[in-house]
Design a protein around this nucleic acid. Structure first.
Lengths: 226, 226
DNA sequence: CCTCATTGAGCAAAATGAGCATAATTTCAT
DNA sequence: ATGAAATTATGCTCATTTTGCTCAATGAGG
């Protein structure tokens, strides 16, 4: 059970994030703090494994709080997801250098948070390997820990039947196919085909190329990745 | 110039690493320390941008030194590559949590070090973007900063796929290209190529030079900025 | 009956190409 | 030397077409 503290001054946002976190049964929201001071105190008292940290806090900048958290000893120090509207490169640099496990830019899709939590969980599992690991395993674990999407993670989640249907459809056609074409072939709606193909492209199951040539948006064409 | 300090107790290994670092003209080795104490002191005095840190040091464990480095203020604190024979997952976890920019397992191929330095350099350049960045750009920068291979992430430097295509096209051609030439090469319209190239010139992604020599408006020629 | 996952409808937004007005140069006539 | 004409590129608008997304409907399962 990954005990998670949310540090966010906007209570409604905090509750929404808490609801998303709770969707994964391996995570437990142990509290919400709306200031840096109360957040720090809860870290000391409750010993969360993970903190979702907003950068704009009323009493102290989130990165300063993060720096203080990083000074805690190993067993007390949580991992930190930075969740913020700040998109300037200095904030990003500082968060990376401080060791943020993830940097999520507001506004974001709740399912994206769920996905990053899932990847983080898998990274922890990978890091709990017994015995010595190769450089390749190290790199894979590091990439996971930092929220990168890698092929190994995405492969384990394609048991959804519609995804399987689409994969089969793409296998049958050597040419790249558009969402409309996949929809026609499978007798599903264009919206559904588009939704799944976009997700599959994000997870590197398929590759995306654009077909230009007429007015209007270019056509997304999808092909199974090698 | 990225000023680099090597903290390594085995002098021969330190010299070999220094030689590899020096192969990249953008890196300068400013010193070699063989203990944690002298390493810490050189960080304070010389203000390196980057430290290559061995974990087995005679006077203090490398991760403890790393934790002390992470307590330094932003301007003084270097980025840290961990280079070590330690392959146990606890060391890896701790290094990741402390914010290691890279974790390299001994023994390693010198060219691998060069490659990681190159990726790190590109990540720094990416992080020096002006203006606000999208989540995709954030993720790409974070992934680079953490040592992921460039080909996985570098092509997603902009969240607009047409911009990426144009960048790739300009990379392939050492000569400056006009909008018509880019359009022909990519099978997109001249208007679209012109639109994007103008925007990219405004954002300093490309530089603009005019080609004179015939009646009519001069031809805008675009080249990737350095 | 309630919750959740999945789906399709349909709309707003995004992105493109056609094509025209304008800009900017070279050429030519005076 | 100067102004007009010819030439050719750019900038921009608008119609078109696709994507991304929200919301309601539906069915499965508890």
């Amino acid at each position: 059970m990954i005990r998670t503290l949310i540090i966010e001054d906007d209570f409604r946002v905090a509750e929404i994030n808490a609801a998303y976190v709770a969707k994964d049964v391996d995570f437990q929201v142990i509290g919400i703090a709306n200031t840096a001071a109360s957040g720090f105190e809860m870290v000391i008292n409750e010993r969360p494994d993970l903190v979702l940290l907003d950068l704009y806090l009323p009493d102290e900048h989130g990165l300063e709080l993060f720096a203080r958290l990083q000074q805690l000893p190993r067993g007390t120090k949580p991992d930190v997801f930075v969740i913020t509207a700040a998109r300037d490169s200095q904030s990003l640099k500082d968060a990376i250098q401080l060791g943020a496990a993830s940097y999520i830019v507001k506004p974001f899709n709740g399912h994206e948070l769920i996905e990053r939590l899932r990847i983080y969980k898998i990274a922890l599992e990978r890091l709990n390997l017994s015995g010595e690991v190769s450089q390749a395993e190290v790199d894979a674990a590091v990439a996971l820990m930092r929220g990168s999407k890698v092929d190994e993670v995405s492969d384990t989640s394609s048991n959804n039947p519609t995804t399987s249907l689409i994969v089969t459809c793409l296998k049958k056609n050597s040419n790249a196919m558009s969402a409309s074409e996949v929809a026609d072939e499978l007798r599903i709606s264009r919206a559904t085909a588009q939704r799944y193909l976009s997700q599959m492209a994000d997870r590197k199951i398929v590759s995306l190329e654009l077909q230009y040539g007429s007015a209007g948006r270019p056509i997304n064409k999808y092909k199974l990745s090698d």
